[in-house]
């Protein structure tokens, strides 16, 4: 049997983490290939529903990353995002959605190495947790019915 390769979706802001991930590449730092990066104008724009949709579409893990506090291109987008994440995390935890599968981080445009580290460690965590079958079962409820 081949080893489980986690599917990871990264929601990142254009100004810091996306540029940071770019730096990781231009610095020729190798990191896990499991991540699919989605670029947003700002972490404040990352709707909580998008995270659920990622799980619904088969992601095993999620990274959400943006500018460090006080570094937001739009001055306060990440502060608002932080509050939203605090609330969202609490709600997901109550609902039994595995919050260990969502990694939040601040990665600046100068932190190419940190980005590689975030991705690698997230891949490692998700590899240990295994595929997100609980959510996949719920998301694939109808398909399963039809097949049976």
């Amino acid at each position: 049997m081949t080893e489980f390769e986690p599917k990871i979706v990264a929601f990142v802001c254009n100004w810091c983490t996306y540029a940071g991930a770019d730096l990781t590449g231009t610095s020729r730092i190798k990191y896990a290939q499991n991540v699919k990066i989605i670029r947003f104008p700002c972490t404040g724009r990352i709707d909580f529903m998008l995270l659920l949709k990622a799980f619904g579409e088969g992601a095993d893990g999620i990274i959400v990353s943006g500018c460090h506090p006080n570094d937001c291109h739009y001055t306060s987008g990440n502060f608002h995002a932080r509050r939203r994440w605090i609330m969202f995390r609490g709600l997901l935890d109550l609902l039994g959605i595995d919050i260990r599968r969502i990694q939040y981080s601040w990665v600046s445009a100068a932190e190419g190495a940190k980005w590689a580290d975030i991705v690698n460690s997230t891949v490692k965590t998700i590899r240990e947790l295994g595929p997100y079958t609980d959510y996949a079962k719920v998301a694939g409820y109808l398909e399963k019915e039809v097949k049976e």
């Binding site: 006080n70 605090i86 995390r89 919050i99 601040w106």
Partner: peptide, 9 residues
């Protein structure tokens, strides 16, 4: 600006 959380790396 100083909202506290423990889960953001």
């Amino acid at each position: 600006p100083d909202d506290k959380e423990s889960f953001i790396r």
